[in-house]
Amino acid sequence: MRRKIPSIEALQAFEAAARHQSFTRAAEELALTQSAVCKQIATLEEMLGIALFNRIKRRVSLSEAGQVYAREVREHLDRLERSTLSIMAHQGSGGVIELAAIPTFATRWLIPRLPGFYAEHPNITINITTRSDTFIFADTVFDASIHFGTGVWPGAHADHLFGEEMIPVCSPQLLARHPCSQPPDLVKLKLLHLSARHDAWHKWFAAAGASDLNAMVGPRYELFSMLVEAARAQMGVALVPRFLVQEEIRSGSLVTPFDIPMQSEMGYFLVYPESKREAKVLQAFVGWLLEQAEQYRLQLQP
């Protein structure tokens, strides 16, 4: 017996209503009548045997089961849309790679190098979505992820790209106003922190031989890119990965008051499911990215 599954129209109506928390706004988005949306959702609830919405007078809100189902439906509809756009765009040739990547790594290191990849592989498209957390590939649309950590990722193969070398940077104008002759003097410039690494400055000062300082004071930012811009705006001194500020140091918009690098115990990895190790489209990207990472590592050698 063929299993009964919801129609795509019913799922679209439910997803829109769940997102807007309104049948009326869902109907407007889908160019349907409100009664049509209500009927689609009622049919879906009847088939599932569970209420997806709480209905109180003229207002609706997702039930607990509806909240879980809405997330799953949204992911599947998004995957279907991406697959449809991919086959329309490539007409059977080339392919698309769905890549999850750390935000600042993607914008400051990967994207500037991508023109070289497209020159070699014009029929492959790379879609990049920012993700910082570990996830199960089977539950997402992603083919691979660029991850910062230890390289341990359940059910996935990990290729090491390079380690992380943290250095202090600040505006040359700020340093001119507040000269620093030794590492502890940096406290005078105001320390800028990354929220996720609250003890980074403490570790750097310890590596620089000044472990008895209070290195916790100063504003905190969510992304390294925010730290870089705050340093450029003369708001203080930031501790960031060297690869993120190579262009600023080269142009002189940022300087390194003390070139004392702090090596992280973790690094950057390209991870992808074991089942994708033979996928030609993905492996073309893997090979290219590993070459780029090797070139970068060679640049850092004295």
Rank of each mutant, 00 (worst) to 15 (best):
P103M: 10
T104G: 03
F105M: 11
F105L: 12
A106M: 13
A106W: 05
R108F: 06
W109L: 10
W109D: 01
I111N: 01
R113T: 08
L114Y: 00
P115Y: 11
F117Y: 08
F117R: 09
F117W: 08
A119G: 06
E120C: 07
H121Y: 14
P122H: 08
N123A: 13
N123R: 13
I124G: 04
I124T: 00
T125H: 09
I128R: 09
I128K: 12
R131M: 09
S132L: 11
I136S: 08
A138K: 01
D139K: 07
T140W: 04
T140C: 08
V141P: 05
F142P: 07
F142Y: 15
D143R: 05
S145C: 11
I146N: 00
T150W: 01
T150E: 07
T150S: 14
G151S: 02
V152I: 14
W153Q: 00
W153P: 00
P154M: 10
G155Y: 01
A158N: 02
D159S: 06
D159V: 04
H160P: 15
F162L: 08
G163W: 06
G163R: 09
E164Q: 06
E165I: 08
E165S: 13
M166V: 12
M166I: 13
I167L: 10
I167M: 05
I167N: 04
C170G: 04
P172M: 07
L174F: 05
L174V: 11
L175M: 10
A176F: 07
A176Y: 00
A176T: 14
R177T: 14
R177G: 10
H178S: 03
C180R: 09
Q182N: 05
P183V: 04
P183I: 08
P184T: 11
P184H: 06
P184C: 07
P184L: 08
L186D: 09
L186K: 11
L191Q: 06
L194H: 12
S195K: 14
S195L: 11
A196F: 05
D199K: 14
A200Q: 12
H202K: 15
H202R: 15
H202Q: 14
W204Q: 06
A208S: 12
A210S: 14
S211V: 01
S211W: 02
D212I: 06
D212Q: 13
D212H: 14
L213R: 05
A215G: 01
M216I: 08
G218E: 01
G218V: 01
Y221F: 15
L223V: 02
F224L: 09
V228C: 10
E229Y: 03
E229S: 11
A230Y: 04
A230S: 14
A231C: 02
A233H: 08
A233Y: 04
